[in-house]
Design a protein around this nucleic acid. Structure first.
Length: 487
RNA sequence: GCGGAAAUAGCUCAGCUGGUAGAGCAUCAGUUUCCCAAACUGAAGGCCGCGGGUUCGAAUCCCGUUUUCCGCUCCA
């Protein structure tokens, strides 16, 4: 625990790779920037986190249902949502000050200055030229204009500019055989819009009454300018989102409701509350009325894990406008039609995964006076552990493996288990510690006599002898979702 | 995208001023012990990130490139 934090983070990344949690994508081809793959244990852990969220949101709330919308969506959706216009700015960097500017804003500033200096001709002409270049997406021309009009960086005062580049956060591709502008589709940069455009479908087919929510887990894609810090910011990532539709005027109380509910969900896993905090946005996004982040203290500082946003009726209204379809709700209680307001909870699955891994990772010193000893373990909540239990025959002979297999075969229908007979028993325990297996079951000679086994607990390293018949119940209780969902 | 650093076995790293790759742990096969790792025997594993250059000869020097990390920047 006293280790320097960046060393801890490094160790977690190494551990994640060594034990099959996370691999760099396309590694044998040198990797692909900011893209990662989940390995055999990582996938199990990630699936368990998804299950925990899905149960907490969809299964336990009668007024929340889940959907799975397509990654490809009608291009107009991103116009309506504001993603297309908000993210196609021509940017230029000054090489000396290392500052980045919007090329069109630099030119606008220059036009203003021309105007002030009474050079209205020049101002007008530049305005026309700029508009033309912007309209044609002529980035080269924009740079020419900046050079020709001798625009200098206000900070460094130099005119040492890079080329003008278009920064569009959305990945695009062509749909259909003909590469035509009309066939341009985007990979969704957020899953939320898939919920908004299905709002009416779900409301009608599910006979949902406001307030109600729609949940979704799915991939989203953002062409980040720079993506770093392992899986904190990836170009392809997974979100777990819920949009909660409420009557206008009640959004404040629902916002508070979900703010507390969501933090409870995090804390139920046993993470220390001091590791979490709320962070209020002061600079709000175009759609938001108010926004809070739930932040977790990573080794490199507090980072957003989940956002709770009050999105007003912005999205539904926009889609109503762009699609021409009414997206309203008739509220029989007040006898009124309205576009619902929306409270969004949006959690980054990959960040949640990393949080879980970092929080669980522990290097423990077990040294005694006689012997130096230590172990690395993942103190994962049993509900989330990739492998629920491991089964070991104490030795490879005397029929112990056969007996262990028998027990294993019965249990593996309900639980993800591992069987191991290689190496000394202590070594096998330690191997399971490293992937966070909460329980190890050992079959020994006594098992053959009275059908009891020992169960060894990861966190305490204590053992207990129990009848083999009861294993299903014992493990079942320990890994039950009740342990986190009924808090 | 800019600046800095790095890249050698699955992991952590060594490899001096250029002379055809090494350790510990991990892995695999076997032996021994049997309830908490590092015991014994053996094995496997590396285009020294990739490409080019200098040289009789490059992991080592130079250039480019990719990836990662740290700052700045970006994150609707």
């Amino acid at each position: 625990m006293s280790k320097p934090t960046d060393e801890l983070f490094k160790n977690v990344i190494s551990h994640a790779k060594e034990y099959g949690f996370v691999f760099p994508s396309s590694e044998i081809y040198d990797g692909l920037s900011a893209v990662y793959d989940y390995g055999q244990n990582g996938t199990e852990l990630k699936n368990n986190i998804k299950t925990y969220w899905w149960k907490a949101m969809v299964q336990l709330n009668e007024n929340i249902v889940g959907i799975d919308s397509a990654i490809f969506m009608h291009p107009k959706i991103w116009k309506a949502s504001g993603h297309v216009d908000g993210f196609s700015d021509p940017m230029i960097d000054n090489k000396d000050s290392k500052k980045r500017y919007r090329a069109d804003q630099l030119l606008e500033d220059k036009i203003d200055r021309y105007d002030k200096d009474g050079q209205t001709d020049k101002a007008e002409q530049l305005q026309i030229e700029m508009d033309k270049a912007l309209k044609n997406d002529d980035l080269l021309r924009l740079k020419e204009l900046i050079i020709a009009h001798e625009i200098a960086d206000p900070i460094s005062g130099t005119r040492n500019w890079t080329d003008v580049r278009q920064f569009n956060l959305m990945f695009s591709t062509q749909m259909g055989a003909v590469a035509d502008d009309a066939d341009l589709v985007y990979l969704r940069p957020e899953t939320a819009q898939g919920i908004f455009v299905n709002y009416l479908n779900v409301q009608k087919s599910g006979r949902m009454k406001i307030p109600f929510g729609i949940a979704q887990i799915g991939k989203a894609f953002r062409n980040e300018v720079i993506a770093r810090q392992f899986i904190i910011r990836m170009r392809e990532f997974e979100q777990m989102e819920m949009q909660f539709f409420v009557r206008p005027g009640t959004q404040k109380e629902w916002f508070e409701h979900w703010k507390t509910e969501r933090l409870k969900w995090h804390l139920a896993l046993g993470t220390g509350p001091e590791k979490y905090r709320y962070h209020e946005h002061t600079k709000l996004a175009h759609y938001a009325e108010s926004a809070f982040d739930i932040e977790y203290e990573f080794p490199f500082g507090f980072k957003e894990v989940e956002g709770i946003h009050s999105r007003t009726d912005f999205d539904l209204s926009q889609h109503q406008k762009f699609s021409g379809k009414k997206l309203q709700y008739f509220d029989p209680e007040i006898n009124q039609n309205y576009v619902p307001y929306v409270i969004e909870t949006s959690i980054g699955l990959d960040r949640m995964f990393l949080l879980t891994l970092i929080n669980a990772y522990q290097e423990e010193d077990l040294s005694t006076d006689e012997k130096q000893d230590s172990r690395v373990l993942l103190r994962l909540h049993p509900c989330l552990a990739p492998v629920k239990a491991a089964i070991f025959p104490l030795t490879k002979k005397d029929g112990l493996p056969e007996k262990a297999r028998q027990i294993m075969d019965k249990l593996k229908i309900d639980f993800n288990l591992q069987y191991e007979e290689k190496d000394a028993i202590g070594k096998r325990y330690r191997r399971q510690d490293a992937i966070g297996t909460p329980f190890c079951i050992t079959v020994d000679h006594q098992t053959l006599e009275d059908n009891t086994v020992t169960i060894r607990y990861r966190d305490t390293m204590q053992q207990e002898r129990v009848p083999a018949d009861q294993l299903e119940k014992i493990i079942g209780d320990l890994v039950s979702w009740k342990n986190v969902l009924s808090i």
